[in-house]
Design a binder for these strands. Structure first.
Length: 885
DNA sequence: TGTGTCACG
DNA sequence: ACGTACGTGACACAG
């Protein structure tokens, strides 16, 4: 007899997972009728995977029938407090059922029962009939159904990845057998289904108890053996709840399901119906998968035709642009300092001109147009466009709208660098993403087909032109127009010029350091091998873990998801008794410097000018800070001497010049003092006190005659940092190695001494709750949807960011303003601004200009904004970056 | 491609 | 009871 394989799917659970996995792309997944399709799409992806893997002979998708079930009769509040299903998801269910019908898969729901019960019942019948069954769900509770005939596949990471639970795997992962899952639930309850279990019992204790006594019944049979007094009290008090919770968690395997296994026979899809469905949903990927005739892949449903003219040297004069145009310069690759030019589009809603030949841009009519500040340009990523054109000898001027920048300011989560995606976020659907047109990963390439490429370019320009008004209006509504016009837009050009300028790196110096590090590494390596008694890969956490904890039997202090932790903190503790740990730390430190900084930097020095040209990402961070890539020049070592040596390779571009830097001193705490209006903190800054020492005096209640020792200053400093990060007693205790209770005491005292700060932190959390976002002094926004999350971790994280973002973000605002003013201030000087490292600006200049800079730069920086307390700036100069101390 | 580790403010 | 500091990027390894 042929093997019978049954695929059972928990429809609600998988749809729910798919919906949230693709939630951030909700805007991209709509069909021509405006129906959201992300859950349907994700569900179908899962189906394809599972059908392929399982090759079922029978299949069923079970759905919940409604809110009222036999469980709500047992317990009124079952699944109470659950947020209502999002309408964007609910509307997809009827279509999901249609999809399943077209795929030839039976669907079923049963009043009074949940999908779980239908699945449990069907699986039981299938087991009796000799089937091999696979259950697909997003809900771990169903692992109680795992046995020799039935495995439970839980979709993780959205729906693309699954985790298969066999009885052995359940035991390994959860510490109990499948049958005992319900006992665990009985004791610990279930937050998402809203039933309580026993007070004071979480997952850990529940597993321990069940491991020892076998079941909830077993626990109560041996209740007298339990010595922990509090635990016993809770168990006794909550006995009824425990038994009720166990019942609620138990899947009913004898529900009145009026389906026979015969009804579930799976014979594959009805092809025509499925094709028609995919077409209605606009699922090009799935249509391609079926290689349907007459459906061209690029013909996205709903995408209208677009007209354009191909430019050549002969028809350049046809380009008719008077006061405004959209422009997009396409390159093959992210690194616009080096990427090959692929083409461009210029024009307006009446007409689009395109070409692959960027040299046309260097010719009179187009060059003049681009350099004319009177012609307003609408672009996507002004900085990238400016740098690209600069390579062609063109200085872009007159940029009005930058779709990317505007979109980022409106919502930092919409920070995709892809025009198609950004457009979709703002409700514009007439342009595809680059991924759709160019492909992704290794397969990504500019199309050789002119029509495909030019159409896409024209659609990009059209999207830019069409969205400008909307986004400007949104910025006005958010009170962010000034942030855009006065800060971010000019900032883009300041950054572009810094990137183009680059900073000189002495490759010989780096190579010399490199060979020294190589020698040191070889030496430490040998010592480690001797200590270990064998050779192994020190860089592999897995092999290292094996040597330290299995071969050498060092104590396991901490574990990671995948094995033993060998992080610094762990090795430092081990180093007390085991010299090998000390050597590994040394090895790691040098290996890091060698690979990331010596070798990494050598790779990116431009041979033509001996410089490195980073790219600042202006639309990435959630706080408004910049980030730096390719290479990252914002994390060049400074804290250890070996690392700091790397800075010797950063030199001025001319002999006799100097590197100069100015940094804001404690800008974040000053911002906090300003925003919180805290009188005590403001006083400390106004009096020019050492803020950490002042804080130490306050929280340790020192008299004026008592000395602030380095140790208590260090602790006070950690508390100050903690406040800025959104403090927790646990975090603080970890950081400075004190007990949690002590940390809690510190924080309480801190808030007593700085009551304004306490009020500020509470106010920010409240603001986030009330309006859904927090703001910086320049009206930069960060939305915090998780602030109302029922998940403790997500909510706590949102609360900490509500406190931190206005501080970190306002500091970012301030230095950006200073940088914009700086360019003007440096007019007529040879000095050049090269780098920004969050609270620090780095320049190069002829030695004779240094005294001028030393006055000018701090003046620009501390007058960037007017706060309730002064800003403080410190400056340094020297022959290399290393010498700035 | 995800994880662990470590570099910076 | 929950499980933690905020914001980043690059590298090596392993699957």
């Amino acid at each position: 007899m042929a093997e019978k394989r049954l695929l059972l799917i928990d429809g609600n659970s998988v749809a729910f997972k798919a919906f949230f996995a693709l939630y951030t792309s909700l805007g991209r997944f709509t069909n021509g009728d405006g129906l959201h399709t992300n859950a349907i799409y994700g569900f179908n992806t899962m189906l394809e995977t599972m059908l392929d893997k399982v090759q079922p002979t029978h299949a069923l998708v079970a759905f919940d029938a409604g809110k009222v079930t036999f469980r709500t009769k047992m317990y009124d509040d079952y699944k109470g407090g659950r947020a209502k299903t999002a309408p964007e998801l609910s509307e997809q269910f009827p279509y999901l059922k249609e999809l399943l019908k077209a795929r030839g898969i039976k669907t079923y729901e049963l009043p009074n029962y949940e999908a779980d019960d239908i699945i449990g019942t069907t699986a039981k019948r299938a087991e009796a009939a000799g089937f091999t069954t696979t259950i697909v769900t997003g809900d771990r509770d169903l692992t109680q159904l795992a046995n020799d005939h039935t495995t439970v596949a839980i979709s993780k990471k959205g729906v693309s990845e699954i985790e298969r639970y066999t009885p052995a795997y359940v035991k390994e992962k959860m510490g109990v057998t499948p049958e005992q899952i319900i006992d665990i639930k009985g004791l610990q309850g279930d937050n998402s289904d809203n039933y309580p279990g026993v007070t004071g019992v979480g997952p850990k204790r529940a597993v321990d108890l069940i491991d020892q006594y076998g079941s909830v019944e077993g626990v109560y049979d041996h209740i007298d053996e339990i010595t922990a007094k509090k635990l016993k009290e809770h168990l006794v008090a909550d006995k009824d709840q425990a038994f009720l919770s166990k019942k609620l968690a138990t899947i009913n395997r004898d529900a009145p399901v009026d389906l026979t296994l015969e009804d579930l026979t799976y014979a594959g899809p009805e092809r025509d119906a499925l094709v028609a469905f995919y077409q209605r949903m606009g699922f090009r990927k799935f249509l391609q998968g079926m290689s349907v005739d007459g459906v061209t892949p690029s013909a996205t449903p709903g995408l209208k035709a677009i007209a354009y003219t191909v430019l050549t040297a002969a028809n350049l004069a046809d380009v008719q642009v008077t006061d405004e145009c959209a422009f997009y310069l396409e390159m093959d690759g992210d690194n616009y300092h080096l990427a090959k030019f692929a083409g461009f589009v210029i024009g307006h809603d009446d007409h689009w001109w395109v070409s692959r030949d960027v040299s046309l841009l260097q010719m009179a009519p187009l060059k003049q147009l681009l350099e004319n500040a009177q012609v307003a340009k609408q672009v996507f990523d002004a900085k990238r466009t400016y740098v690209g054109l600069n390579r062609l000898g063109i200085t872009l001027a007159g940029v009005d709208g930058d779709l990317l920048l505007c979109s980022y300011l409106l919502n930092t989560y919409d920070n995709s660098n892809d025009l198609g995606r950004v457009a979709a976020e703002h409700g514009y659907d007439q342009v595809e993403t680059d991924e759709d047109v160019y492909g992704r990963g290794a397969k990504r390439a500019i199309p050789t087909d002119d029509t495909v490429f030019f159409k896409h370019l024209a659609r990009k320009a059209q999207a830019i032109a069409r969205l400008k008004q909307t986004l400007f209006k949104d910025l006005e509504e958010n009170d962010q127009a000034e942030l855009y016009r006065q800060i971010e837009r000019p900032m883009a050009f300041v950054l572009a010029r810094m990137e183009i300028e680059g900073i000189t790196v002495d490759a010989d110096e780096l190579r010399a350091m490199g060979s020294k590090f190589s020698e040191q590494l070889a030496e430490i390596e040998q010592t480690i091998y001797q200590e270990a008694g064998e050779e192994f890969n020190i860089g592999s956490p897995k092999q290292l873990g094996h040597i330290l904890f299995e071969k050498m039997h060092l104590p396991v202090l901490k574990k990671t998801k995948t094995g033993y932790s060998t992080a610094v903190g762990v090795l430092e503790k081990l180093a007390v008794d085991a010299p090998i740990a000390e050597n590994i730390l040394k090895y790691r430190k040098i290996a890091k410097i060698q690979s990331t900084y010596v070798e990494g930097l050598l790779k990116v020095i431009n041979p033509a000018d001996h410089k490195v040209h980073t790219r600042y990402l202006q639309t990435l961070t959630q706080t408004g800070r910049l980030s730096s890539v390719d290479p990252n020049l914002q994390n060049i070592p400074v804290r250890t001497e070996e690392g700091k040596a790397i800075r010797k390779a950063f030199v001025p571009r001319h002999p006799g010049w100097q590197i100069f830097s100015s940094d804001y001193s404690q800008i974040e705490l000053r911002v906090l003092a300003h925003m919180s209006h805290d009188a005590n903190m403001q006083e400390a800054f106004r009096e020019g006190e050492d803020i950490h020492a002042a804080t130490a005096r306050r929280i340790f209640k020192l008299g004026s005659d008592q000395e602030v020792t380095p140790n208590i200053r260090r602790q006070a400093k950690a508390v100050n940092f903690g406040i800025v990060y959104g403090i927790s007693d646990f975090g603080l205790s970890q950081n400075i190695g004190i007990s949690r209770k002590q940390a809690k005491q510190f924080i309480e005292t801190y808030f007593e001494e700085y009551p304004g700060v306490k009020a500020y932190t509470e106010h920010m959390v409240q603001v986030a709750h009330d309006q859904g976002y927090v703001e910086t002094i320049a009206h930069r926004r960060r939305y915090l949807p998780d602030i109302n999350s029922r998940n403790f971790n997500q909510r706590s994280f949102a609360e900490r960011t509500a406190m931190n973002t206005p501080i970190q973000g306002s500091a970012a605002d301030i230095i950006k303003i200073a940088m914009i003013h700086m360019e003007e201030a440096l007019q007529g000087m040879q000095a050049t601004m090269l780098l920004q490292v969050h609270d620090e600006l780095i320049f190069e200049a002829p030695a004779e200009e240094i005294p001028t800079l030393a006055k000018l730069v701090p003046k620009i920086m501390d007058s960037a904004v007017k706060l309730e307390i002064p800003l403080k700036v410190e400056s340094h100069a020297g022959p290399t970056w290393y010498d700035l101390k």
